[in-house]
């Protein structure tokens, strides 16, 4: 967090307060501790160092957007947060629990940290509804009726109740990703991780996914989002973290990072994507 200067932090908390008063989830006790704390993560594949000492804090209700050139370690960082990838060293804490602790059950942790994938990965052989009920029934041990009710309410939340009986192949890319979000939400996660959720979709279909994500922001969901959608980053994020070569280059509120970055590397990156 050495990159963040005190002024930015002040601005950031203010913007969060605004949103929390809307969502009505302000909680003085929780306010003091960040919900997600990432300390000095290192990860390498063979000789290639992907993460080189990444640290980050995400408070409850925060929407942290990770940006950076491809290969900067954004996706690996996300996958380390729910231990789909094991870190080489460093710590991740979710509230009081150390996610990376040797005694922590990754399966229990993953229910609290929902994940949405770039390639969506809906279960191909199951309908939209069954995609959601599977986890509720096999992981949560809910009854068929209970799981079905929950699945339908999640599908309703993403506006796809009418498609409950459709198989993934019968849905559009945007609809599939919305089911993917509903599937993760059904497990009642405390944090949602989005790994380039719209990169596989054409712009028209991206919008319906971004709308669902904005709705989650409004509901006060804590989110860590890897995305190239700068409109979402500007509108929904409480903080932007710019990563390059496995390191946090700069971190701050969206306005500052976009319009007045401190680092030359950050400025160059946003220059280049604006030209696209």
């Amino acid at each position: 967090m050495s990159e963040r200067n005190p002024d930015d932090a002040g601005g950031r908390i203010e913007s969060k307060r605004e949103r929390e008063s809307v969502a009505g989830t302000a909680d003085a006790e929780r306010e003091t501790e960040p919900l997600l704390r990432i300390e000095d993560l290192w990860k390498s594949y063979g000789n290639e160092e992907v993460l080189r000492g990444v640290s980050l804090e995400v408070d409850r209700g925060d929407v942290e957007v990770l940006v950076g050139p491809s290969g900067s370690g954004k996706s690996t960082l996300l996958r380390c947060l729910n231990r789909l990838t094991e870190v080489d060293s460093g710590h991740v804490y979710l509230g009081e629990t150390e996610v990376t602790g040797p005694d922590t059950d990754p399966n229990a942790i993953r229910q609290q940290i929902g994940m949405v994938f770039q390639d969506i990965n809906l279960f191909t052989h199951l309908t939209a509804r069954q995609n959601i009920t599977l986890g509720l029934r096999k992981v949560r041990g809910q009854s068929k009726a209970e799981a079905r009710r929950r699945a339908d309410s999640e599908l309703d939340r993403v506006g796809l109740l009418a498609q409950a009986g459709s198989y993934p192949a019968q849905l559009s890319g945007g609809q599939k990703q919305r089911v993917g979000i509903a599937r993760a939400l059904a497990m009642d996660p405390e944090v949602m991780l989005f790994d380039e959720p719209t990169s596989a979709l054409d712009p028209e279909l991206s919008n319906e996914v971004l709308e669902v994500m904005s709705q989650l922001v409004a509901e006060g969901m804590t989110m860590v989002v890897v995305t190239h959608e700068m409109r979402f980053a500007r509108g929904g994020a409480t903080g932007i973290t710019f990563l390059d070569e496995g390191k946090v280059i700069e971190h701050g509120p969206p306005d500052q990072i976009f319009d007045d970055p401190e680092r030359e590397r950050t400025a160059r990156f946003f220059q280049s994507i604006r030209h696209e």
């Binding site: 729910n82 789909l84 399966n107 229990a108 993953r110 229910q111 929902g114 994940m115 994938f117 990965n121 809906l122 279960f123 599977l134 986890g135 096999k138 992981v139 993917g180 599937r183 993760a184 497990m187």
Partner: peptide
């Protein structure tokens, strides 16, 4: 991966 991400072994 998706199955493990919702907490399945």
């Amino acid at each position: 991966t998706a199955a493990r991400a919702i907490g399945m072994t």
